[in-house]
Each structure stands twice: as C-alpha cells, then as structure tokens.
Design a protein around this nucleic acid. Structure first.
Lengths: 339, 339
DNA sequence: CTGAAAGCGCTAACAA
DNA sequence: TTGTTAGCGCTTTCAG
C-alpha cells in the first residue's frame, strides 16, 4: 500500500475557493483569468479566499480546457553553452511582453535526445517551439516530433515545409574567419568540426572556399560542439603532420577546449597557435581569453525567431519566416600574429 | 472571427489511433504508457497507426488524469550563469535514470520574478521543484508559491518547514577566500555583495569574520549577482578611499564583471588587483582568466538535491534533507601576489 | 484483451 | 453576475 503518491494531499481547487468565498465557481474562474467584469468586493472576497487556502491554479487543467498554454518552449542542447543564454534573452524580451512564458527543455549532450526534448514540449502543448538544438541533418525527425506545433529553428535552417528559421549566414562566417587567419600568414589552418548539421556544413564550406581561393589544403578534425569535443579534436590534430598553426573552431565552446589543451601543452596563443571561435559568447571577451570569434548575433536571432513564432501562432497561414543574419568577425588577440 | 487559434487543427487523439488500428482505446493507452501486457501483434498495429497519424500524446491530459507528471522543475535565475549548468548536469544524472524529465523555468533577472518562475512550475504540477533562484530573505514567499509541492533548494537554505535544502557552507567559503587574500598581503579587501539572500549573508559573514581576526575593516559594495552587477560595484569601489587592492566577489559572474572593468582601467590582475570569485565555474579555469574561486561543488549539489527531492516525492514524510557541503578554495593566478 | 463509466480541474457558452 | 451543461484527452477501475 502506498508506494507512490503516498501522502499526496489533494490540492485546493476552484470549487474549494468558491465555497470558501461564498461565490460561484465561475466567478472564481473569472478573477483567476482576469477576464470580464467582476465587482470589486466580490473580487476581494475571492482573492482573500485564495490566499487563505493557498490556492494555485492547475495549469494542466486550464490548458487542457482552453487548448492553449501561453507558453513557448525552447529546446536546447547544453546549458553550458552561453549562446543559448543569448538566445533566451532575446526571446524573453519579445514573448514576455506578449504574455507568454518560457519553458526550457534540455538534453544531456550524451543522451542525443534532441527528439525527446522537442517531444516533451509538444506533449505539454506549448503554443510554439523554438528549436535551438542540433537535429542532425534530418529535418524529417523534427517535423515528426513537432506534430504540427508551430516552430522556428534558431541558428540552424530546417529545410522542412512549415518550419520557420532564423539562421546566420554560416558559410560567410566560416569564410570570414578563415580569410582572417590566412591574412595573418597561416598556411596550415585546421577546422574543428561538430556533428553533422547545416550549421557545421556551412561553416565548413566557408572555410573550404577561403582555403581554395588561396590554394591551401584542408585539415579537418571532429569533436562534438562542446569543450570536451574541442579537446578531443585538438589532441588528434596535434598528432598529424603538418601540424596546424591555426584553428577555426565550430563554436566558442569548442575553442575554449582548444585553448585549454594548448596551454596544457605549453603552446602560446597567438604566438604558437591562432584560434578563432564562433558565436562570440561572453567569455570570449573576458580579459585574458580574448578569443576572436564570429558573431552571429544570437541575441538578435532570439528576438527575430520569437517574433516569427508569435506571428505564426497568431496565424498558421502567416508566411514562413526564413531570415538569415549576416555574421561579423570580432577580432581579438587570440588570432592576431604578433610582429 | 478567428482571432486566436485560427487554423488550429484538432490534434490526433488516442481515439483516432484506436480507430485507425482497429483496437480499443484502452489498448492504445497501454502501449503508450508501456504498461501491462500487450500482445506483440496488437502493439505493432498500434505503433504503426500512431506513426501514420503522427500521434503525440497529450501530456497535459495524461498528467491531469494521472495526477503525476514524472517531471522535475528547476527554477533558475539567469541562464548566463554557468553554475546552473553544473546544477542541471548533476540533477539530470540522477533524475533521468529514475524516469523523470527536467523542465527549466527561467527569470529575466530584471523582472525579479522569482515567484513567477516557481509558480509556473507549480501550475504545471511538476512532481517536485528544485529551487536555485534567489528568493530574497523571504522564505515564506517560497512556501506560498510552492503550495505543497515537494521542493529542495539548491545553494540557498530555505528555513521553512517542509522544504529541503542542499547548500554549501557559505560562511566558511567566504572566510577561506578572505583569509587567502589576507595571506597574500592585502589590507584593503572589498566584498562585492549581491541581493539579500542567505548565501550572500553567509559569504559576507565569513568575509567579516576573517577581517576581524586580523583587525581589518570591511569594504562592501553591492551589485546584483551578475556580470553587470560586478561592474557597477567595481566602479563604485574605485571612487572610494582607501581603494581596495583585493576583491572577494559574491560569485564568478560578478568577478568576471570586475575583471573586465579592471582591464578597462588598465589595472593588472593580480599585480594591481587581486580577485576571488565563488562557484568555480568553467570559465574561471580558462587560460588567461585563471580566476581563484571558491568551489561549492555545484555538480555534486545538484545530484544530492535531486536525490533528496526524489526521496521526498516517494514519501512525503521522508525526513527533511538539510545537507551542507564544505567548500574548497581553488587558487589560481588572479589572487596570487607575485614576488 | 475490450467495454463501460467515472473523474482529473478547468474553460466556455448560454440561459437565467 | 450565477447556474447549468459540455467537454478538453487521458487514466483508472472493474466487469466481462
């Protein structure tokens, strides 16, 4: 007896509040929803009753009945990566004023559960989902998981009908970064790649295109878009000949991994090794880090994606937003050859 | 006509799946919940029907009916702060194997909506809540917002009956940090304070106690527990006499703000200024940053808190967990006086 | 395995 | 303003 939910005390319901306040259930509903006209004294009565009883509305029931949750879901990959914080900031600025709440669903990167993340949000029937998690190259998976929930991807393009996307021009970003390194005099420039996504493919492509323009050969090492991934890839790179003298990394997280390893090996940045990241996260600018990084304007992307999503929620037939922001290379010490 | 939810297509229900598969609704429910015995062929039938129809269970309805969500809520303050990522990692390691999902509710720090964050989780009827947000000194607010939802606070003690807490020994941490700075020869040691919480009060107390032991006077400047707060406080500190030569900061985020400002003013760390943070977040260890920081073992705290919470969910009468972890000072370059 | 019935706590529409 | 009546999509229990 009593294995689960042993002592679960039945929670206070609207009916309880109504009785306590001596009014009808509907009246309570009205004041809770802050809708329609309620006489001040009655409202007062209800509010007091709610406080006495410690009433908390059951959003589950409310949402189920209303078929609407006033909540936006954000699916992300790794809480450690600061880009997501930038995204979230931008998103909140847009949705909070519009009366929406934000719910974040996180994957542990090991569990590769991108799908789960979105599905759990869909299950909760959030009004819309912002997908900032890596979904591999397989957009179909995303579409399936979404099951018609309005969605906009962030950073990554979705190439599925009916899904919006606010992305950066990643191939341009890759090209800018690589050209910068070439201009600094590097010939052996490595790309630290991440899992197979459009973002990765595009950054890679930009890198290649810059190399080709200058007749240089590519050197690619794969990690997993995290600091640990950067370390792995770096260690690999150090065993090869010719050894790279410059690293263009898939993102800042990866670059931080590279920086750490470089120090462990006694390599100085930028004297012995130039490093460029992507995302221009806050830590990239910390004194002493000074990581050159491609800024894809994550904050702005968050805002735009949120706007696009709200648009789509209001009108399912609104035109599909497919914006792309131009990236900007922020040059710091980590990549500048001293003279 | 049609202002909201204009094109909202009715979503696929269990009944639809049952009809499609030619079985009863209960059978569908069984396979969805993965409960009881279902004949393999029948299961196959159902699964296929679900895929054909793109069925996604309505978790709202399921949770409402089952009075259980298999979800743990995490209330946090600021996605930018890496401690929360550490917390989350530890939490996930414990709850995922136990079959729980994690939902994160974030506040924008400006909106001071600690309460909202918890309330929105309570509304969703998550099975338990981990509170890692700053709740001011007012535990009553928390209790009210929780409305009997099992909860454990992370980092902060709750001093409310019925709320568990896994915290660090913050006054010890403050003392360790300050004593270290004293040992480095500093006399003017500032504390960069954060909003009124137990954590802040305790770290402050530890700082004071160390100062008193050595007959030093306190210098306190207040920020808001973020990078921006650190900057504000630092600027303030720079206008006072005597000017501090060392800073013990409420947390790493604050410390990063201080480090940035210091550089802007051309002050070298640690030559002109020693800095110590709290939390020992990942960026503190980045090459070039090398921030001395008190490690409160956030990852472990996350695990313990999750365990305590699960315990409490299983049995409402389980003894209240009130653990405190001993912090450890991780000394790096930022605080060591060169000789 | 199926069918029937009750209920979770709320919203929504309408009549009184 | 208040009742009344439905119903949201699912779980749970019990009999068959």
């Amino acid at each position: 007896m009593a294995s689960k939910n042993s002592g679960k005390t039945r929670s206070v319901t609207m009916a309880d509040v109504a009785k306590e306040a001596g009014v009808s259930r509907q009246l309570v509903s009205l004041v809770v929803r802050n809708t329609g006209y309620v006489a001040p004294e009655k409202r007062e009565l209800v509010v007091e009753a709610m406080q006495r009883l410690g009433y908390q509305r059951n959003t589950l029931a409310a949402n189920l009945a209303a078929k609407q949750t006033n909540t936006i879901g954000l699916a992300i990959f790794d809480l450690h990566n600061q880009v997501y914080a930038e995204f979230a900031d931008g998103i909140l600025e847009v949705i909070e004023p519009a009366g929406y709440k934000l719910l974040v669903s996180v994957t542990r990167k090991e569990s590769a559960a991108d799908r789960t993340t979105v599905e759990s949000l869909v299950g909760l029937r959030v009004d819309g989902i912002l997908v900032a998690t890596h979904f591999g190259a397989d957009g179909r998976n995303l579409s399936q998981a979404l099951a018609n929930t309005p969605a906009v991807t962030l950073g990554e393009v979705a190439d599925e009908p009916n899904i919006g996307a606010i992305s950066g021009n990643d191939s341009l970003g890759g090209k800018l970064a690589t050209e910068h390194l070439i201009k600094q005099g590097h010939q052996q420039i490595a790309y630290i790649a991440a899992p197979i996504t459009h973002q990765n493919a595009d950054r890679h492509r930009g890198y290649l295109s810059a190399l080709e323009d200058h007749g240089l050969a590519e050197l690619v090492f794969s990690g997993d878009a995290s600091e640990a991934g950067g370390k792995t890839a770096f260690d690999l790179a150090m065993t090869t000949t010719p050894r790279p003298t410059a690293f263009f990394c898939y993102n800042d997280a990866t670059a931080f991994g590279v920086l750490s390893c470089a120090r462990e090996r006694g390599l100085r940045v930028p004297e012995d090794l130039a490093v460029v990241g992507y995302d221009n996260t806050t830590p990239a600018g910390y004194p002493g880090v000074d990581l050159t990084s491609v800024d894809q304007r994550a904050h702005e992307m968050g805002q735009l994606a949120a706007q696009a999503l709200l648009e789509r929620i209001r009108d399912q037939d609104a035109p599909l937003e497919q914006q792309s922001l131009a990236p900007e290379l922020v040059i710091r010490r980590s990549s500048v050859t001293p003279n």
